[in-house]
Amino acid sequence: MLEIKNLHVKLEEEDKVILKGVDLKIGPGEVHAIMGPNGSGKSTLSYVLAGREGYEVTEGSAELDGEELLEMEPEERAAAGLFLAFQYPVEIPGVGNMTFLRTAVNAQRKARGEEELSAGDFLKIVREKAKTLKIDADMLKRPVNVGFSGGEKKRNEILQMAMLEPKMCILDETDSGLDVDAMKLVSEGVNALRSAGRSFLVITHYQRLLDHIKPDVVHIMAAGRIIRSGGPELALEVENNGYADLLDGVK
């Protein structure tokens, strides 16, 4: 599904290298987690994959189903099936959540040569999916993320994911700012989307999210590299001992 090879990335504006050779391979239907201390490059990896400006790829590649992602515009990556759930979902005053969702869904359908959804069909689908995420009609009507609580913003991200039906989902610290109940709700939303054809990359600081979204593989990232990979037990090790031991082991 997603194959990242020897990815090196620096900031465009300054000579700061953030990713120093990341290798990662995620198969169809797999859930991988990336954990790591602050500043290790986790969020940069998610932004670079989604196509945010401000980063320069100096070496390496990232392919989604054999297609080179790094040469595409952000919207082309989305149409190819990539989805990034933001750590800080952006507030967009003046743009209704529903308008936004419908424009996004239809833009992707159009890019893939599919027929656009009618207003009626769209409404039916969005209401159904919103209900399971406990997103009420009012939240759908309000401007995108404006005045949403932290939990509402993250649930709104998952709703977008559910509507867009991507094949590769990246969750960038989706657990940050969530209380226990909200984390459960968001995790259930994610788990409902798990399928044989859909893969996940879950970026998190804490093991607790991985209690809800059970990963197949856990990677530890530090200083721009993946320093260790293993099963779910690796996350428990981090939870119990912190990153220090792992980092020492590498040195």
Binding site: A50, G51, R52, E53, E73, P74, E75, R77, A78, A79, F83, L84, F86, P89, V90, I92, P93, G94, V95, T99, F100, T103, A104, V105, A107, Q108, A111, P143, Q160, L164
Partner: peptide
């Protein structure tokens, strides 16, 4: 730019995203 990237990352072509933000403003 952040809002523009957010919209693009959801599949809106840059021009559509720009137009939507201008209209919202």
């Amino acid at each position: 730019e952040t809002a523009l990237f957010y919209l693009q990352s959801r599949g809106l072509p840059k021009r559509t995203a720009q137009a939507l933000l201008v209209l919202a403003f």
